[in-house]
Amino acid sequence: MKHRIMLRIGPASFRIGSAWRQPIADLARLYAAYPQPVDGVADFTVRLEPTRPWRRFIRPSVFIGGDHMLADAAPMALAHGLLAAEMGMNMQMALGWRRHVLLHASCVEKDGKALVMTGESGSGKSTLAAQLGERGWRLMGDEFALLEPETGGVFAFPRLVSLKNQAIGVMQREAPEGRFGPLMRDTPKGDIRHLAPGAEAVARMDEGAMPALLLFPRFGFAPDIREVGQGEAFMRLTQASTNYVTLGEAGFSALTRFVTGVPARAIDFDSGETAIGMIDRLWAELA
């Protein structure tokens, strides 16, 4: 394809091709500090192509393709090309990754131990992880946590943090302007702006950590902390995993080991500061 880039994020590497220059230029700037795939061979191919040949010029519309695709994925506006590239990479991971249990969760690390947070979009897990990443924790990922069946360790997938709506303002107060991508208005998910993880998150992306605390955050409710039983934690983690079924017995063993060894809590909160206070307390008490 005409425009292309290769990059490695944690254990996974990508080859991204595009019919247009801009999405690749954005990726090149925001992923400048990231390593190249070993030997120049990528795990996955992502393609950003026109839905019809002439759509490359008139009213450009980006179709997200690649090794793994969803047949009914709707095309995106070219102005949202960076988002399309990120979605393309996520899609490869969600549908194609087999080396870890892929948890739709954010993850931060301190003292070699990992805090894993999972919940639906809007739960605040992504913004919390991004905030913690600017306040002494190492950001391991805002979207996926990779659980290794052999060791029980969690590995990082620190791609760009995808900030939505109010979270954009929250993080603009915490991180320098140079790490942000373009503001994309009116995407299917609202306004979106990407944030490149800090230097430490990138430099230590290959370092795993043992999970020490599992949280199910929920934004927009009166502050509350609730214990979560192992059965409920197991069920919610299988629902948060795109490849649990695919991994078969390895996935089963990894998740049972996780829920029997890691304390789990549900936390409700109405502001980032409240949540961070709760997390500090729970971490001191349980991790």
Partner: peptide, 22 residues
């Protein structure tokens, strides 16, 4: 069959079907 009791429920992993039953 792998039977794994948790604190509140029991998990059963069935190798032939690849299914987990709670």
């Amino acid at each position: 069959i792998i039977v794994q009791p948790l604190d509140d429920v029991t998990l059963i992993y069935h190798r032939r079907s690849g299914q987990t039953h709670i």
